[in-house]
Design a binder for these strands. Structure first.
Length: 553
RNA sequence: GCUCGUGUGGUGUAGUUCGGUCCAUCAUGACGGACUCUCGAUCCGUCGACCCGGGUUCAAAUCCCGGCACGAGCACCA
């Protein structure tokens, strides 16, 4: 029936066996039986019409008329080995700048898992590099705020690695004392050559005492940068050369912006993160798959300490079409050069920029949760995020008229008479927001120059008009809507004030000037400009231009 | 090169653990239509995918083998 008399015996058999596992051993016998039945049904459908089959079915087996479709699983996949109430996750950004749209994935997923299992999220600042990715002191607070904005609640535990240095150094000492770590004085290049050949470096077999002596020399500053590094001993025959005797701590004499020059030796991510995850009792680590080797290195360290490694999960690389590649350090340099006005410059993919433009945290969060957690490298489009955002904000954005490149016309109602003194237009078309905007009608109106060429138009909520050839007069043909002519937005001249709309276009900011409806404008509000799109009111000076920041269509 | 990972419509995702109820889910997009006094919203419809080749099986997106493509790591960055 479903296939118009062209049913396939094979798929019928498939369904049957799927439901009746007990019949599977007799599949071969069944096949001929099913073929005969399907042929009969097809014949009935062909000869007597599909309706006959429907009737026959309704009489014998009515529930078969309903076809069930598969449904999409919603929400995040279950966390492996998770116990309700005992899940601890972590989100560990480098505070060398504020959060970007990519970080939003980490915040959304970690906080959502914590919510699902009544667990906790540790917000940890991995700020143990004083030179290459120097921490930005302001960024700590920014990130805490941005985390809370996106997650809907603050992080449960907040930690700064730089404040916990004594602990890491102590564990490094334990490692040396335990003989599963050593101080290596080889140059990076020499070590790499030995490592790639699965050869031990000369420093490896030295005694614990010799290592501890070098260790204190590293810490008191008498060994200079690059002259020594602490390594974790591993099997040198590991198939992956990257894991062999990996570096755990190195010397950095550059002062740390938060703790100054108190330390000469700083742990690398793999060491610091491993120790801290254990101390915080982290049960699940969600990280980028570029950190898979990190998991393997850290697991080797956990084996030395006799600890159990958390459950790791990974996501793939994310690219945003509209932004291409970006890095926090790259943005930091560009801002310093004056290419951008700041971290919240509308062209930047930072959370502060998106927030300023009017993206809703809930929409961002829903977007990332909808993508879920997969290891595929993906390329997403802002369009999709914008669509999530529209559905969240539409019902709470009032409408306003913004006439770009305004053209002044006299409104001539002499043909029909009965011109109203004012019009009342809903603040929101479905009444999601109550109330109206009152427009006092004068002798002149403004329309967009681009609309003037059409000739026969409907001024939204007012009248069907004809624009004369000189584009100077709009003659009212009727107040009520008479036909399907295009509807345009407009404005009585005295109801508006000058404004300009900034719209990020790739690396440029394009500016459109016009006249904005001057009714209850509120700084910071997100409004929908009719026929233009959503925008945020950035500033309303006492006199001068109102600044509008474009959000999306 | 070595090591690891990933391949489902244009994009993103569900289904893959344990083959069958999958002529493959949902969202976004594109196209068409309805409705609405916005190019917004809503509603309806259409389009469009299991990387390739073998194998196992009554039956493969799912299992096996072999390719190919893409990505990442191989930093004294995170």
């Amino acid at each position: 029936m479903e296939y118009d008399g062209a049913g396939q015996a094979g798929s019928v058999l498939g369904r049957l066996l799927g439901e009746r596992a007990d019949l599977r051993p007799r599949a071969r016998d069944l096949k001929s039986l099913v073929e005969a039945e399907v042929a009969a049904a097809n014949e009935l459908a062909t000869n007597s019409g599909v309706e006959a089959v429907r009737e026959a079915l309704a009489a014998t087996n009515p529930e078969a008329l309903e076809r069930q479709k598969q449904v999409k699983r919603t929400g995040l996949k279950e966390l492996p080995n998770a116990t309700e109430g005992e899940v601890i996750l972590r989100f560990a950004p480098n505070p060398n700048g504020p959060l970007t749209i990519g970080h939003a994935r980490g915040v959304s997923i970690n906080s959502e898992y914590a919510r699902m299992y009544s667990g906790k999220v540790v917000l940890r600042f991995d700020d143990t590099d004083t030179r290459v990715k120097t921490p930005l002191p302001e960024a700590y607070d920014w990130i805490e705020t941005e985390y809370e904005w996106l997650a809907g609640r603050p992080a449960d535990i907040i930690i700064r690695a730089s404040e916990r240095m004594p602990i890491y150094l102590e564990y490094a000492t334990k490692m040396l004392e335990g003989g599963f770590g050593y101080v290596c004085r080889c140059s990076a290049a020499d070590f790499k050559a030995l490592r790639d050949a699965s050869q031990a470096c000369p420093c490896r077999p030295r005694s614990v005492e010799a290592n501890l002596a070098d260790w204190s020399a590293m810490n008191d500053g008498s060994i200079s940068e690059g002259e020594a590094v602490v390594r974790v001993k591993t099997d040198l025959d590991l198939p992956n050369p990257a894991l062999r005797d990996w570096p755990a701590l190195r010397i950095q004499h550059t002062p740390h912006p938060m703790v100054g020059d108190a330390y000469k030796v700083w742990p690398l991510l793999d060491f610091q993160s491993a120790i801290e995850d254990h101390l915080q009792g982290v049960t699940h680590i969600v990280r980028g798959k570029d950190l898979m080797d990190s998991t393997r290195k850290q697991t080797l360290l956990y084996e030395h300490f006799g600890w159990t490694y958390p459950e790791p999960l990974y996501w793939g690389r994310v690219k945003v079409h509209e932004f291409g590649g970006f890095s926090t350090s790259g943005m930091r340099a560009a801002i310093a050069d004056g290419d951008y006005s700041g971290w919240d410059d509308a062209r930047l993919p930072t959370l502060s920029a998106l927030r300023r433009r009017g993206f809703d945290s809930q929409a961002l969060r829903e977007f990332w949760l909808d993508l879920g957690l997969t290891q595929k490298d993906i390329s997403i489009s802002m369009q999709t995020i914008e669509s999530f955002n529209s559905s969240v904000i539409d019902s709470r954005c009032e409408r306003r008229s913004f006439v770009r490149e305004p053209l002044s016309l006299s409104l001539d109602a002499s043909g029909v008479g009965g011109a109203p003194e004012s019009v009342a237009i809903a603040r929101h078309p479905h009444g999601d927001i109550a109330g109206v905007r009152e427009w006092v009608l004068g002798p002149e109106i403004l329309i967009e120059t681009a609309d003037a060429g059409i000739g026969s138009l409907r001024l939204k909520d007012l009248a069907d008009v004809n624009i004369d050839a000189g584009a100077a007069r709009a003659s009212v043909e009727a107040w009520d809507r008479m036909d399907k002519r295009p509807i345009i937005h407009w404005l009585p001249t005295e109801m508006g004030r000058p404004a300009r709309l900034s719209r990020p276009e790739g690396d440029e900011i394009c500016i459109e000037s016009g006249i904005l409806e001057d009714v209850d404008l509120e700084e910071g509000a997100i409004i929908q400009l009719e026929r233009v799109g959503f925008a945020r009111i950035d500033s309303i000076p006492t006199d001068g231009l109102v600044e509008l920041l474009y959000l999306h269509g």
